[in-house]
């Protein structure tokens, strides 16, 4: 139970300030190490996988509206999935610089890999191949992170 209160009293000493900064780091680490459930990443990967199939939807009006509707449903269900994951984890971390780098490390190589794949299997398959690879990478990345944190625990 906390009893110390700082009002308009003297500034904290150097040691007290250092202790406060240590408490700050500890609290931030508690958020960074909070784990979202593994089912969330599996579901997210599975949900991202078929997104590329939307590129096969007709582009002429009014049939194109089906594609727009499908994308809206996909996005709404994605939002619901993220909401479920957040509710289970109890926290929605702000993406750190490290996480942004990790996301780029997943997205960029997969996007690059999708180009030669599309040349082999046909351009129609570029977006489906890209989204399938992104979905698989999300699951693999989450598994790798989970294994690493289990080892370091």
């Amino acid at each position: 139970m906390e009893t110390r209160e700082f009002t308009q009293g003297p500034l904290p000493s150097r040691q007290e300030a250092a202790d406060a900064l240590a408490a700050v780091e500890q609290a931030r680490t508690a958020v960074e190490t909070a784990q979202w459930p593994m089912w969330y990443f599996v579901a997210l990967g599975a949900w991202v996988t078929p997104l590329g199939l939307l590129s096969w939807m007709p582009t002429e009006f009014p049939q194109a509206l089906w594609g727009v509707a499908a994308l809206a449903v996909w996005a709404a269900l994605l939002g619901a999935l993220v909401g479920l994951g957040a509710a289970r984890a109890g926290v929605v971390p702000s993406p750190s610089r490290k996480q942004v780098v990790h996301m780029a490390a997943i997205l960029v190589p997969v996007a690059v890999a999708a180009v030669p794949i599309s040349r082999i299997v046909g351009e129609d398959w570029m977006w489906p191949a890209l989204s399938a690879l992104e979905g698989a990478m999300i699951i693999v990345y989450a598994l790798a992170l989970r294994l690493r944190s289990a080892r370091s625990a």
């Binding site: 931030r28 958020v31 509710a87 926290v91």
Partner: peptide, 28 residues
């Protein structure tokens, strides 16, 4: 902010877009 628990609450929330009350309670 400087009161120890309030500083920890702010630190915790600064690393998150949002956090559930019970999550903050448990961590603190």
């Amino acid at each position: 902010i400087h009161a120890p628990n309030r500083l920890r609450i702010c630190a915790l929330l600064s690393a998150a877009d949002q956090a559930e009350f019970s999550f903050v309670q448990e961590r603190l």
